[in-house]
Design a protein around this nucleic acid. Structure first.
Lengths: 198, 198, 198, 198
DNA sequence: CAATAATCGAGACGGTACGTCTTGTCTTCAC
DNA sequence: GTGAAGACAAGACGTACCGTCTCGATTATTG
């Protein structure tokens, strides 16, 4: 989506908020029924009562549109905040993540990750808007843990993040095992062992 | 590829080995230039000097063909064997894997994993021929480690496998960080901490 | 249409005669309802139950297809034959032409002429298959008339042809006056005056 | 163009003469480069620095705009006046016409005629402003010829006009032969034969 | 050694989505 | 009340692949 939307020059007919909303809603709604692969711009346009040109005017590609639609619905959920011990916050975060990813949103995010792979521009956008935000929140939490003495390992936050979330995304995408409570519990246990090791 | 190739009835003109080889070779060769997404059956057929019908006769889909082509080149490598301590074997395996995945094969395997996601049949085939083989070899190695006392953790082999390989595949697919020596070293260190914890 | 249809190499699936016929029929049928301008390839394909690709495979453009369709229906009417005096043959020919052009076919031919104007390729095809055929028949008739003494003018056949048919096409296209019997009669009379003048 | 321009109510912002002029100029200028068919309103607007809405406000269609633009440049030429014998005036007129039509203006007028065909409104406008004017001047000249005895034929002026100009427009539009001196000479000769025949 | 049967290549087929383009209308702000 | 700027719905454009099909030509095994 065009990022300079707000500060765009005021000339001409203003962008239709209705059309934009309808497009994003249609995209999400169709994603519930079909895969990202078989989702077509044509069908989104049809469903939204919008012309294809309007979609192409504001989004470069199907994947850009879907990232937009998906993140609009997920961005507000701020999972890294809250008081208490670091492991408590992390436990809640990972449990929520697993719950979320077991359902429809897991299917969608997995498809986005997969799709974004060979589209450098989309990958960039996805990283900026999704990955980076989460990593930076994770980083702050780790800082807190180091100060409080909960985290004693010398392993960098970058790698710690991959250690905790890597296995989850691995299962999400490759689907060789479930994202169930047992798995989450084991993962968190292993993570705790790691951060407490000097 | 049709698995009953060997015990197929002998009636009619026999399948052309040449055509099959040419198709697999063309697929691999094209994968070096383009992404799996933009690889088309039509182009493979053109490049291989083979008709589309011939391809469709022997493979269900583009992804089935590519899995076939890719695994043919990678199956012989048996990475989990060798004497010595479990961590030594694992270290060698993970280092080899990371080296391999930093290059062309990483690109291909990542694309296959991603593509296979919403094609249950292909997912099944990929799991049987790739994932399961590796997991079972990993399992044997863990058994050895438990007997020798190297591995003391109660965490199941399934989860251990995800703990070790999950972060690697995570970076391979999402591409938010490099698969470099530093990363591998940290991963292995963390893994050792886990398996040694009672 | 591809002119080497008959002597095309025999490889591959043979061209579907049914599809070709359906396309031409649909084109003609739609031309009865709409103008050539608002006739679309898409609608022809839909009506004929044929894919757009099939149409584009065999015809370069809408106008090439329409010329093909129109001439298929009009080519058999060979108006320049017959015994008797030259003026008698011509009279019959011009009367038939005017009758024809007063109706649907006049509308179509006028549109073709108009459309063909800035498409050199189509113009070429139209000239070869329509204009040239008629001019050559006209030329033969004039030869006969000169031998029999009916035609005494020194004006070339080329110009004579334009003198006779020019006014008809002029009215057909510009539509400033009707192609009625009175007009035809006057035209023929004038033509007779010209050819008899030494 | 709106004919009540002069006596339009004076309310509101006055119509921009500049915009109108720019539109007509752009249309003519573009017609020199492209065909009328591929000329688009959008391009005219762009070239003229005018919005599409402004064009649609003042002209019904592309063809109305082009007729306006073209006739503005050609209307002043009054070709049927002058003293002397009728055939002399006609000869000069036809020669001028042929010269004119061999060039850019011929290309434009042919395209207009052809385009105007299935647009009754445009046809009407074109007829009133172009055809009728010429025909009425031709009619006056014929009257003079009949009085002076130069014209003895009983053929109506309407038909005479088509006899003389039909072949020229025929060649102009169908382009099967050149509008060269030889052709003009032959045409005039034939015409003379006709008008002198009782 | 002919008949049978499955293969091969070539390439046409109906279908569908692509991303672009033009049309004519509409909406806002500036003059 | 015009004007430009430009967004909008509609829908055709010509292209590219899809997966299926129909052909004539091959190439083995079977009877």
């Amino acid at each position: 989506m065009d990022q300079s939307f707000a500060d765009r020059p005021r000339l001409g007919r203003p962008r239709s908020q209705k059309a934009q909303t309808a497009v994003l809603a249609s995209a999400l709604s169709l994603l519930k029924k079909t895969s990202l692969r078989s989702l077509t711009i044509e069908e989104i346009a049809r469903e939204a009562g919008v012309s294809k040109a309007t979609i192409y005017r504001w989004w470069d590609s199907k994947i850009a549109l879907v990232i937009d639609a998906f993140l609009k619905t997920i961005e507000q959920k701020t999972p890294f905040h809250g008081p208490g011990k670091v492991m408590t916050v992390l436990r809640r975060n990972v449990e929520n993540l697993a719950t979320e990813y077991r359902g429809l949103n897991g299917r969608i995010i997995a498809q986005i990750i997969v799709e974004v792979r060979d589209d450098p521009e989309a990958l960039q956008g996805f990283y900026r808007r999704f990955i980076r935000v989460r990593r930076s929140a994770f980083h702050e939490l780790m800082e807190r843990g180091r100060k409080s003495g909960e985290i004693r390992t010398a392993i960098s936050d970058e790698v710690l993040s991959d250690l905790l979330y890597g296995p989850i995304y691995y299962r999400l995408i490759v689907q060789h095992g479930p994202l169930d409570d047992r798995f989450v519990k084991d993962m968190l246990h292993a993570f705790q062992v790691i951060i407490e090791a000097s």
